[in-house]
Amino acid sequence: MSADAAPGPAPSTARRLHDVPTVPGAPKPDPILVADKVSRRFGGLTAVDVDHIEIQRGVITALIGPNGAGKTTLFNLLTGFDRADTGSWTFEGTPLAGKPAYRVAHAGMVRTFQLTKALSRLPVIENMRLGATGQRGESLWRAMLPFTWRAQEAAITERADELLHRFKLHALRDDFAGSLSGGQRKLLEMARALMSEPTMVMLDEPMAGVNPALTQSLLGHVKDLREQGMTVLFVEHDMDMVHDIADWVIVMAQGSVVAEGPPDVVMADPVVIDAYLGVHHDAPATEAEERQQLAEVESRLEKEFSSPDDDSEAAEPALGARDEH
C-alpha cells in the first residue's frame, strides 16, 4: 500500500509528500501553515498540546482522531476563535498567533464550523454576499452613499450566483438560510467561505449529519478546492471519505499529534489503532497473523469511524439528530 493508491491527488504536490517521513510533526517540502508548541488547557484538562505541525500547501490534509482529541480546539486556536496558552504559528510566513479571527480570515485562512452557522434570517444570497471581503459599502460612511458600492455589489452578486450554481443551491437563492436542510446548510457554509477567496480552507466535520446523496457532492467540492490550488485541512470521522480524498492524514489523540502519513499508512499504524481503541495489541508473531490482525482492526476502525457518534455526544452535540428532515 502506498500514497499512489489514493485516487485523485494533484500529482505534483502529492508526489512531493512521498518523501515526507511518517512521523508526528514531520516537516513538509512546502508548508503553508507551521505551528509550534501550541497548547490550550481548560482547567485541569489539556485539550491541545501540539509540539509541531506543518500543513502542506495545495493538498488535502485530513485531521482525524477520537472525539475529544482536541481537533476543534486546535481549529479554534489557529483561526483566532480561542486564545492559546502557549505557542506560535505562521501562515504563509506571517505570524498569526494572538491575531483576532477576522484578521486570520483576511490573511486567507477561512474556516467553517462543526455546528453549521447559517445566518438563518438572511436569504441565501445575502449569506453569500456577506462572505466577500474588502467591500466598500462595509464602511459606515460609504454605506449611506449607495453609488459608491453599487458596482462592487453587482460584481459580488455575480460571483455569489456562480458559486450557488456550482453548489446547486441556486434554486434556494432567495429563501431564508434557516429554511435549508442540514446538508444544504453545510454546502452554503462552504460556498460562503469561498466568497472570501481564501488560500486555505479549514473544514470542521463538513460531512457530519449530511445525507449520503449530498455527501458525494460535498466530497466533489472539496476535491475541486484542491484543483483550484487551495489548501484544505478538514476534520472527518468517516475513514472511507478520508481515504477517498485526503492526500495526507494527521492523527490527534488527547491533544497531541500521535501519527501522520498517507491514509493507508496511518490506518495501519498501531499507534492510531491504540488511540481509537485504547487497547494495546500483542506484537504479531507471523506475517499472516499480522495481516489478519490488521484486517480485523481495520474493519473495527471503519465501524468505529462510520457509526454515528454514540458515546461522544457529551463533547459534541449531535449534528445528525437535528439535520435532514
Partner: peptide
C-alpha cells in the same frame, strides 16, 4: 444571527 460566522468571514 451568529457573530462567530461573521467573524470567520473576516469582519
Amino acid at each position: 444571527e451568529d457573530e462567530d460566522a461573521v467573524r470567520s468571514l473576516g469582519k
